[in-house]
Design a protein around this nucleic acid. Structure first.
Lengths: 107, 107
DNA sequence: GCGATCGATAACTCTCTGGCTATTGGAAAC
DNA sequence: GTTTCCAATAGCCAGAGAGTTATCGATCGC
């Protein structure tokens, strides 16, 4: 029953985690070490964040020797876009109903 | 320096709070009592959530006698839409750069 | 093989927050 | 004016989660 946007909001609510995702979107493929260098937090903390992002489907990992590369999965943002559109839709349909009402009252 | 989408992600990360906002989008204007009836939590908890939503600019309040009505501010979602578009933009421009590179290599 | 490096896991701490009850301030009803 | 009702505030508590250090498994360079 849990909606797909639920996990996205929770995951992207943390600024550090969002920053990691943004960096992967901007600059593409990155190793954990490269991400840690810029994150300003410890390597285990970065790994944990990457785990959460992966769980949410926002990133993929690719193993290459002893390095692990992460990359953003842009498609994972779709449920978020859907949700905002849905909210806008509710708004619009309420507005339409009001218009209909006024039209009927005008008869 | 704090981006406008920061507070939106934080605010909408909580399911109860998001449910309140969704309800206001769907059904429009609601009193605190009406929202409390459906929320499954105490009235003070609902009031606190409404305070956070208001702080984020996601809702407006309107006082009418001893009742307080809340309504959704749909425009407040704009920074969220902007952010997702920006991520998509980063993605696209990296793709374009790759195309350019391949084109140059092809010469 | 051996030491060094990369990344994940474990175990712990500390803060932040979402929930509660109790109370208060106003506005209506009587 | 007193009581009743609505919503906000205060104060408290428990759980979640973001950070830390320590450690381990695996892979590379020598």
């Amino acid at each position: 029953m849990s909606q797909p946007h639920e996990i996205l909001f929770k995951t992207l609510a943390d600024p550090t985690r969002r920053a990691i995702f943004e960096r992967l979107c901007r600059d593409g493929d990155q190793t954990v070490a490269a991400l840690t260098a810029r994150a300003g937090i410890s390597q285990p903390a970065v790994s944990k964040h990457l785990g959460v992002l992966k769980q949410a489907g926002l990133v993929r990992d690719r193993h290459e020797g002893r390095n692990t590369h992460y990359s953003a999965e842009l498609g994972a943002l779709a449920p978020l876009i859907d949700w905002t559109n849905q909210m806008a839709g509710f708004w619009q349909s309420r507005f339409d109903n009001l218009e209909d009402l006024l039209k009927r009252m005008d008869q």
